[in-house]
């Protein structure tokens, strides 16, 4: 029966030692150890979360980049197309304008020529009138003595007129 009969001394000392062990270990061992473990776990969790967040951020930035690049390409296409259109338009307009200009110039030239021609005709008329008067004067001055000579005179006069 000795085996299941607890000794008073052992009960007492066990109570005291285990109590002290509980207090001392609780204060000087478990508290710092558990705190350190918790801290480290928190740090690791935070680092993992940060990594995840950074990865997401990176993915978003890359997506943004792709979007921007695509957008830029489209824009470039549009700009080029527009440029081409503008070019053709400008060319057509230029051509049209040049045609109009040429026509106007032609018209003006024609007008000028007409005017010139009219003025020349007027001049000629005046000359003819004046020459006719002169010729008449000369003829009258020669006194018309000789028929033959008169004819020759008139012929030369006309020749002169023609020359003018």
């Amino acid at each position: 029966m000795e085996l299941i009969n607890p000794g008073t001394g052992l009960v007492f000392w066990m109570l005291v030692s285990f109590g002290i062990l509980l207090l001392l270990l609780g204060k000087f061992a478990w508290k710092p150890i558990l705190r350190a473990l918790k801290e480290r776990e928190d740090t690791i969790n935070e680092a993992l979360e940060n990594a995840e967040r950074t990865r997401e951020e990176m993915a978003r930035i890359r997506a943004d980049q792709d979007e921007i690049i695509r957008h830029t390409k489209v824009e470039r296409e549009t700009i080029l197309r527009e440029a081409r259109e503008i070019k053709t338009q400008i060319m057509m307009e230029a051509r049209e304008k040049a045609g109009e200009e040429a026509e106007k110039l032609m018209k003006e030239a024609r007008l000028t020529i007409e005017n010139q021609k009219n003025r020349v005709l007027q001049d000629i008329e005046e000359q003819i009138t004046r020459l006719s008067v002169e010729i008449a004067e000369k003829v009258l001055r020669q006194n018309l003595d000789n028929k033959e000579k008169q004819k020759e005179l008139i012929r030369s006069l006309i020749k002169d007129v023609k020359m003018n």
């Binding site: 030692s17 285990f18 062990l21 001392l24 270990l25 000087f28 061992a29 478990w30 150890i33």
Partner: peptide
């Protein structure tokens, strides 16, 4: 028991 208490205190305070 005393020996084990001393060993435990020594070990775990060192670890802490």
């Amino acid at each position: 028991v005393f020996v084990s208490v001393i060993v435990l205190l020594w070990l775990f305070i060192a670890v802490a």
